[in-house]
Deep mutational scan, measured.
Amino acid sequence: MQRVNMIMAESPGLITICLLGYLLSAECTVFLDHENANKILNRPKRYNSGKLEEFVQGNLERECMEEKCSFEEAREVFENTERTTEFWKQYVDGDQCESNPCLNGGSCKDDINSYECWCPFGFEGKNCELDVTCNIKNGRCEQFCKNSADNKVVCSCTEGYRLAENQKSCEPAVPFPCGRVSVSQTSKLTRAETVFPDVDYVNSTEAETILDNITQSTQSFNDFTRVVGGEDAKPGQFPWQVVLNGKVDAFCGGSIVNEKWIVTAAHCVETGVKITVVAGEHNIEETEHTEQKRNVIRIIPHHNYNAAINKYNHDIALLELDEPLVLNSYVTPICIADKEYTNIFLKFGSGYVSGWGRVFHKGRSALVLQYLRVPLVDRATCLRSTKFTIYNNMFCAGFHEGGRDSCQGDSGGPHVTEVEGTSFLTGIISWGEECAMKGKYGIYTKVSRYVNWIKEKTKLT
């Protein structure tokens, strides 16, 4: 034993070699072989497995989906700052455009905790909710729209109204504003409101030439003092309507412009014939205590009207009353817009006519005020429907199939267009061939041609 100890002390290297040989010859039971080890760690190889990531292109799944990435790591994937920024906006807080917040056709661009709407022409605001041009839906104005110097929408209202708090709607500024039905039992019968379409306001006024200088022999019209197929109006439903009495009662109609003036057809009036105007009328054979009678003290036909040349060209006249009318729910003026808007309103496509005229061709006159909704007829169809001249200051309205029309005794009465609950004068009943005849239409004086003249002559002093 002493000898062994001496050998170990003198030859430590020998001992180490012996131990190493023993270990190498022993069977290893701690580690699995290569094949079995792979069965336990069965993990798919990654895209760049075996390579240094710093030297390969980034992978979106590896960089940002398996674990949260930084902007720089995302930049490695896209290799483009702009594309990385677009991805980053949604990656950080989701897609803010998912709810489609942009209105009126706006395009949404996502941002971090926010979004941006790219608005089409005519709109602005956070969600493109603000109209900035009158060309689109009248700028959301209830009545009139004008573009300011910086191309912003400025709404306005006709006389007797003021802008509401929203700067879009119009509200009454006087007790009985024009064009409004205020009798409670008839307010439910107000005709369907007309909503502004998209309009090209630059070209809204037709490029028409008034044929002022045409000389033409007097034409022989049949029954051209021209509501057939209409309905009984309720008291106060058309408070701007008046009836004219002269040699015979209810020979023509008219509309209240203001307390002192009536507008009617020029062919209705004769110099030297006494005319009485009755406002607030409903049943011409009954006294309903809503009527107001006034005498006409002055007749002003349009300066281009000449019955000797043509009885229905420039067929418009103004009547001055001896005493002002007292405005109330049964006696209310009709609204008159400017030339541009009167023309736009007419193009809405349908209007209402009213009167006490004959209820059928050569038949009896109506006792109760009649009204009828009539569609506008395109000019080409209008011209083809008659052998008589249709001037540019006239328009056609009615039904091709016949059966409904204005008729004798309705002449001078109103053709009105309702705009968001307020009625505007767009025409004056003038003439036609018979009444409600198939293929024939009622012919009306186009008020847009005469609004400046009306307003100039009827100013209240």
Rank of each mutant, 00 (worst) to 15 (best):
I7M: 09
K455D: 03
Y115G: 09
N5T: 10
G230L: 11
T29V: 14
V77W: 09
Y341K: 14
W240P: 01
L372Y: 11
T276D: 05
H302T: 02
T81D: 11
W453F: 06
G412I: 07
D223T: 12
A308P: 07
F360P: 13
E54H: 08
E124S: 11
G351I: 01
P175W: 04
P235H: 08
L460D: 15
K137I: 04
V227W: 12
Y47P: 06
R162N: 13
E231P: 10
I40L: 08
N5Y: 08
M6T: 14
M437R: 06
C145M: 03
F87A: 15
G125F: 01
E285G: 04
M65N: 10
A308G: 12
L372P: 06
S255T: 12
H302G: 01
D405N: 11
T381W: 10
R191Q: 08
Y341E: 05
C145A: 03
K109F: 08
P177W: 00
E286Q: 04
G122Y: 07
G409P: 13
Y115K: 15
N258G: 03
T186N: 06
L52S: 11
V56N: 13
S220I: 10
K459Y: 12
S350C: 12
T29R: 09
V4C: 08
W240D: 00
A266P: 00
V263K: 00
L319W: 02
K455E: 07
G427K: 00
V183M: 05
Q185H: 08
T287N: 14
C407A: 05
V326A: 11
S430G: 07
S25W: 10
T389V: 10
Q96R: 15
N166M: 02
V227F: 11
F78L: 11
S49N: 15
N310F: 04
S148Q: 13
S182P: 07
Q96L: 15
K387P: 04
V4D: 05
E270L: 11
G254N: 00
G106H: 03
T264D: 01
T342Y: 03
C170W: 01
D410Q: 15
H267Q: 06
G412P: 06
D378A: 08
M8Y: 13
F395R: 01
G253W: 07
A265W: 01
H289C: 10
Y444H: 04
G272V: 04
G398M: 11
E193Y: 11
T422N: 03
P12W: 07
G253N: 00
E270F: 05
R384P: 13
N80F: 02
V377W: 03
F87M: 15
Q185N: 13
P12A: 13
S11H: 09
F348W: 10
Q57F: 15
A337F: 01
F121V: 13
S411A: 08
F196W: 11
I428R: 01
K387T: 14
L211V: 10
R358Y: 07
R62Q: 12
Y371H: 13
G442A: 15
L325A: 01
S25P: 06
P12S: 10
T417A: 08
G253S: 08
Y371R: 11
K438L: 12
E418D: 12
S220F: 08
P175A: 10
M6R: 11
C157Q: 00
T271L: 11
V4I: 07
G439S: 15
R364G: 11
I262N: 00
E53N: 08
I316V: 10
G421N: 14
S114Q: 13
G236A: 08
G349N: 03
P375N: 15
C155K: 00
S448Y: 03
E285F: 12
I300R: 02
C134G: 02
G254D: 00
S354G: 15
T133F: 12
A337Q: 01
E434M: 15
D33T: 06
E320A: 02
L32W: 09
S107R: 13
F424V: 01
D249C: 03
L163M: 05
K387W: 07
N5H: 13
N328V: 00
G413M: 14
F123N: 14
T422P: 01
V30T: 11
R226M: 10
S70A: 14
G254H: 01
T81A: 06
